[in-house]
Design a protein around this nucleic acid. Sequence first.
DNA 1: CTTTCTGCAAATCTTTTGCAGCTCT
DNA 2: AGAGCTGCAAAAGATTTGCAGAAAG
Lengths: 132, 132
Amino acid sequence: MERSTRQRTAIRNLIEQAGRPLSPPEILEGARDAVPGIGLATVYRNIKSLLEAGLIQAVTLPGDGVRYEATTHHHHHHFQCLGCQRVFDVHACPGDLGRLAPPGFEVQGHELTLYGQCPDCRAAAQGRGAAG
Amino acid sequence: MERSTRQRTAIRNLIEQAGRPLSPPEILEGARDAVPGIGLATVYRNIKSLLEAGLIQAVTLPGDGVRYEATTHHHHHHFQCLGCQRVFDVHACPGDLGRLAPPGFEVQGHELTLYGQCPDCRAAAQGRGAAG
DNA sequence: CTTTCTGCAAATCTTTTGCAGCTCT
DNA sequence: AGAGCTGCAAAAGATTTGCAGAAAG
């Protein structure tokens, strides 16, 4: 049976509170807040454990390493800012995409990632005359 | 200026002929067909070079390593078979997805991956009574 | 002939594993 | 008290970089 340790609790809370996918280094940083001496190996071990328990899920964004987020109750997607690389959750979905696949293919799921500028980066860009 | 070497040509041709995304090891294998003594470092170096030249593009599928494919002339997406893990191109697009992002976000691009069963795996599944 | 590219291997970076001691149940 | 969990560091896998020689221009 899984034990409830300070480390595991810290990691799990961190991911659940985050509201957006976190990378292993980010998890380590955040977890140190609650458990100063925590090591990277423990983070990876708990990620794997939490993953198998279905409490968190992996999110792979092109060009970046894997990130993890709490398993959400409803289907959602992601938005990655091209300016600051941060990833945000998008609680909207284009709907049924089965029609996009060629005949003969059976679509059972999909994953969508939007790219662009987050509000912060748009504001920063306006100051440099990059906005329209 | 970029030189036209046997290795670079082999790698580029391989990716262009492939018709689907290839992983670095697959590229090495295929390139050895034309240039027996080619090394992995050369493959990675050329991938990077081709990437910067805009001749190929990276395709990151969750749970798998990065793959590369020739830059296509028109926007397209991918379909990954959950049965055989193969990746296919999907020449269709749900259209403008800008409306999905929350207010304040500016969508500049998107990437979509469909998951399901390819024709081959569907046929295989029917033989076992899994279809319906 | 000069410069860039190549292949090999060490270096980096990321993720996993081994071991001894501590913590949870 | 017993077993799992933790931290440190080496190991393992993937990608990058250095160097001397070869090929391209």
